[in-house]
């Protein structure tokens, strides 16, 4: 009995040794592959994970001569400070509203465009519309913000000229009136992204088996029914994946638009956590406080992604999720 156990453990350790020798062999055999991967891992360690470690700044007082990890501990001071800041609730609310507009409200628009484009039978018209609709995606937010300000300028902006020509007032200063901000923000967002967003749905519609439509036609299904019962269900996985990815991109590029469209008049609506961090952290040098607010904002983002992923998983019965 004892001998049996002994031999078993010997075998096991031998197997372990063999495995580790095998591992080493694999690594050596694939050394070029690891070499290709190495800079990538170093990159993410430095530019993604080191900043995460740097979040300790949120609990430390920043010293000009201390760098990221210097300075004395201040505990939760910056978080308390932020939550005692009277505008904090508004900032958080604005962040969610902007997120809601860009993820939920915007979401059906590119699908709608794709459906419309998919119904086109005139080839030149289709490709022309597509090319035009992709264009704004390639313009920077700086340029789009410049357009917006110019087009909506009071009196001599082209929109106000149009309103005046229709007998309206024509002197409204849209950028200064906070009540228009979300509308402007949303419309410019749609303007910039709708064409690009529709590409993927179009591609996905192109790969639908045409016999499905033919069969439906035999049954005398109307266009609407075909869209509802064939097109939409076929692109459902695409929709789900994009839904989650949209949220990911929101965290990284969402603030440019708000930053550039912000004016004193609409700041109550346009200020979100991101722009606030830029202003107090990067511009006024309150790095510790800025890092604390940034941490909160990052957590909000993380929660958004996790919750969405969970919901999508549930509703799509596990056929699509990010992980």
């Amino acid at each position: 009995m004892q001998a049996e156990l002994d031999s078993m453990s010997k075998k096991r350790s031998k197997a372990k040794k063999a495995a580790s020798a095998g591992l080493w062999k694999t690594i050596v055999a694939n050394r070029y592959l690891y070499l290709m991967l190495l800079p990538c891992l170093i990159f993410f360690a430095i530019f993604s994970y080191l900043p995460m470690a740097g979040l300790v700044m949120a609990f430390k007082e920043f010293r000009f001569n201390g760098g990221m990890f210097g300075g004395p501990w201040v505990g939760m001071r910056y978080f308390k400070l932020f939550f005692s800041y009277p505008d904090a609730a508004q900032l958080i609310a604005n962040t969610f509203i902007v997120g809601f507009l860009k993820i939920i409200v915007y979401f059906p628009f590119p699908i709608l465009l794709a459906l419309m484009l998919n119904e086109l039978r005139t080839k030149w018209f289709k490709s022309m519309t597509q090319t035009i609709s992709y264009l704004p995606y390639f313009l920077s937010w700086v340029v789009v913000a410049a357009f917006t300000t110019k087009v909506l300028a009071p009196d001599d902006g082209i929109f106000n000229q149009f309103v005046a020509a229709l007998g309206g007032d024509g002197s409204t200063f849209y950028m200064m009136d906070g009540h228009y901000f979300y509308l402007i923000m949303f419309l410019t967002y749609v303007w910039k992204n709708i064409g690009w967003g529709s590409i993927i749905y179009l591609a996905s519609m192109a790969s639908i088996d045409p016999t499905l439509y033919e069969a439906a036609e035999m049954d005398g299904a109307s266009k609407w029914r075909k869209i509802w019962h064939i097109t939409l269900p076929s692109i459902r996985p695409t929709i789900a994946i994009l839904f989650i990815l949209d949220i990911g991109s929101l965290l990284t590029t969402g603030y440019e638009q708000n930053w550039l469209l912000r004016t004193a008049g609409n700041s109550d609506f346009s200020d979100i956590l991101d722009t606030y961090v830029l202003r107090v952290g990067m511009m006024q040098g309150q790095y510790g406080y800025g890092a604390a607010v940034g941490l909160l904002q990052g957590l909000v983002g993380l929660i958004l992604v996790i919750v969405t992923n969970y919901l999508v998983k549930r509703f799509s019965k596990n056929e699509s999720s990010l992980w």
């Binding site: 991967l37 530019f47 993380l302």
Partner: peptide, 27 residues
């Protein structure tokens, strides 16, 4: 390949959470 799975996770996680602009600037 050993380690590739972990490396993928290592990379994908950066899409979900980041340190924010200020620590990045300090880096």
């Amino acid at each position: 390949l050993p380690g590739v799975g972990i490396a993928s996770m290592f990379i994908v996680f950066t899409m979900l959470f980041n340190g924010g602009i200020i620590p990045f600037f300090m880096v």
